[in-house]
Nucleic acid binder design. Sequence first.
RNA 1: GCCGGAGUGGCGAAAUUGGUAUACGCACCAGACUCAAAAUCUGGCGGGCUUAACGCCCAUGUCGGUUCGAGUCCGACCUCCGGCACCA
Length: 897
Amino acid sequence: MDDKYFPKKVEQKWQRRWAETRAFEAEVDSEKPKFYALEMLPYPSGNLHMGHVRNYSAGDALAWYKRLKGFNVLHPFGWDSFGQPAEDAAIKRGVNPREWTEDNITAMRGQMERMGFSYDWRRQMFAHRPEYYRWDQWFFLKMYEMGLAYKRMTQVNWCSHDQATLSNEQASGGLCWRCGNPVTKKDLEQWFLKTTAYTEQLLEGLTEIEAGWPASVIKRQRDWMGRSEGAFVDFEVKATDDSLFYCPIVDGLTSSSAVGRGRIRVFTTRIDTIYGANAIVLAAEHPVIQANLDNFPEAVSEKIALIRVENTKPTDHEVEIEKDGIDTGLSAINPFSGEELPIWVGNYVMMEYGTGAVMSVPGHDERDLEFALKFGLSVKSVIEPAEREGGGKPRFQTANSAAFTEYGVLVNSGEWSGMPSIEAKREMAAYAESRRFGLAATTYRLRDWGISRQRFWGAPIPIVYCDACGVVPERPENLPIGLPENIPITGTGESPLANIPEFVQTRCPKCEGPAKRETDTMDTFVDSSWYFFRYTDPANTTLPFDPETAAYWTPVDQYIGGDDHAVMHLIYARFWTKVMRDMGLVSFAEPFRRLLTQGMVVGETFFDDATGKKVYEMPANVTVTRDAKGKITTAVSADGRPLKHAIERMSKSKGNGVDPDEMVDIYGADAARLFTLFAAPIENELVWNEAGIEGAVRFLQRVWRLVLKWESTIGMTPLEAGAPIISGARDLRRKTHQTIKRVQDDFEELQFNTPVAALMELSNAIADLDVDPVMATPDQIVAVREALSALILMLTPYAPHTAEELYSVIEGHEDGIIKSGGMFPEYNEELARAETIEIAVQVNGKLRSRLVAPPESSNAELEKMAFADEKTREYTEGKEVVKVIAVPGRLVNIVVK
RNA sequence: GCCGGAGUGGCGAAAUUGGUAUACGCACCAGACUCAAAAUCUGGCGGGCUUAACGCCCAUGUCGGUUCGAGUCCGACCUCCGGCACCA
């Protein structure tokens, strides 16, 4: 054993040994319990950053822990290697996207290996390779067959900066998820996957996984599905001239036989307020409006066109959009009251939600009120607060007050007056249904997943257009439909594949006649929707994976990644799994039993106040002052210039990234891993602090020196389970077993930071045993040996290289921990038990004294000791004792008057 | 605006879920070793009062409440962070 700890030497040695011994290769083994540990796959940008390191360090720690606990652990890795950056590089620098991607993967793979993560590299998947994406295409064909894939004209979310279409999830907040620029709308024919067919299942499934997922992610998914219960109500259109106005059946809402010509259907969650309706307001895109554009007076048509154009503009949520609209001149009959209501077009009604038509009730809806006030429409109150506090009459709505949007009691509502809202909602919907002009209904915010991308670097959609046969799916045996090599990529927003005749021109799979290929490729989120199943059977050439093999490994027991995928990847993957279940490939519906979302790694950055230029990436040579809350108020550089301070996500592009390779070079992979897990709870944001990692190295060095000190002594003494317990060694053995329990309990709770503190305490305890090993008694040697052995094994998840090396020193062989049957240390309750414990003595709830007692002391004994205690007597003497509370093992509280 | 989450030393953070607040680490201070420095080791380190010791008082964003006892539970407020955003 070296006198000093040389991380690089140890790390290289064990990385080689692990590869030679195939230490982390796992196979189906029905004798052992399995554990599937999975981290979200990265995009191969070419650079590993500290966020990756944190993510994979946590996953690797868990994988190691489970191995040491005797599980058969599947821990695979792969690359989300389709996508835009490769194409951007091709456009900007003329490189080949495939070569660029492969080079990046090679570079990052090297970085990953230097970190020493325990992956089964044989199972590596690459989204961009035909062996993988042929199965994307295979799934697409299956879904097409099942009626889950379809094509339609739509307004897509369009990012003009990236020249790319985006799904709703990717355009959340009106901003592009990748570049952050505002999203506009564009008309395009697109392929969709019917995620909406699974909305209810996706919602119900959340209750099943709720316990193992972060509450925030569950909540965000629920919000994203946006279930809302209400009713459809059909309003009959009263046109000035019936022959001119056509009122088509609203698409997709034909389930009710009551809908037909001459009616407009609205969706409302507040049918109880229907007597307060003053207008019907339609989206500019509503079919009734679009079908009749030519029939409106010119001024009206122009206004509608204007609103439509405004709707396609980027949305800026900082600024509230002003209500706008126009009276169409049409009117409709309120089926409840018989009242005639004007039909308006309003910019605040969205075609994508509900039916694209609302009944405007300004007395009880903020938006409708705003609209009514702007255009001078009448406002009527039809709901009163149910409880009249103080017995006074409730205040009536006036036109200028805020809308009363809560539930209450109906007024001015004909025969329904006096009924509470909740009851009225149910009864009025039922009434509408019986009269065939409405029905109770549930609508969702979730929409189908648009997967078409006018991009090159993705899996081609395996569809052929034939003049004779129309839209024809490819034959599965023709897969993969490969991407052509060496083609010009322009980035104009059109599908690059459309310009490649060799790709486009093909034969119809049905009639063998000439035909054209679909030139759009799939959203890359398709690749990541099922990759974790491919890991179970990565070489399969007849199916995406063998169902039986997958049945052994899946579902994933623990998934770890960033919460930025809460509503994209994590909804798509759940959807895909449900589809696979319906295809008979898997037998469950939820792919991830437990989910852990780790916080971002951020860096403190300082800018020169005068020039705005970044001057210091790390705060090492910056002097800062902080306010009472610890926030940095001023920062000054070493040469006295004032600096601006910012905390931002670490990345190479921001220039504040700490390069993992550099960390490994200076401190070693083990220290880097240990520090990222110790510095903060895994779900918190981690502010990178260079000094902290030095603490991690120091700790590893201390452990190294401890082993060095005891090496020769304990090497000669076998560890005997039943060794006698004598005096000094007793405390160390107790500490060892208490630590085992703490570390184990915390790992089960996925707490990675607190076990490190426990291990540091144990290490300090061994060092505190101030004995020259040569003079040590046998029981001391046994205790030290046990403590060191446990310490090293428990250190493995954090610092596997160092642990392997030290373990080989103690055990005297070089097989590696896993191959030599190393297990997580056994916890012994008997040894962990304290002989004496400290009991707090409180008088009137204030700590006044402490006493030492046997842990099994009864309440009566504790009380007796407390009253006998001199310090306690000072506070109780001469006072009336009202009450005594004793908590075994903890405290005695004496209440005196 | 609506919905979540969080406020504990100079900093990252612990606290067996109502029972001895500040574990562990970072930074800092002092000492030992050294010609010196680094490294290492030892000690100190929430605030206040007290000449010092013994000790006492106050401290988990603020103000109340429940309780023998509150960082933890309840109510109101303040601040910060995140999510959603005209969803009818």
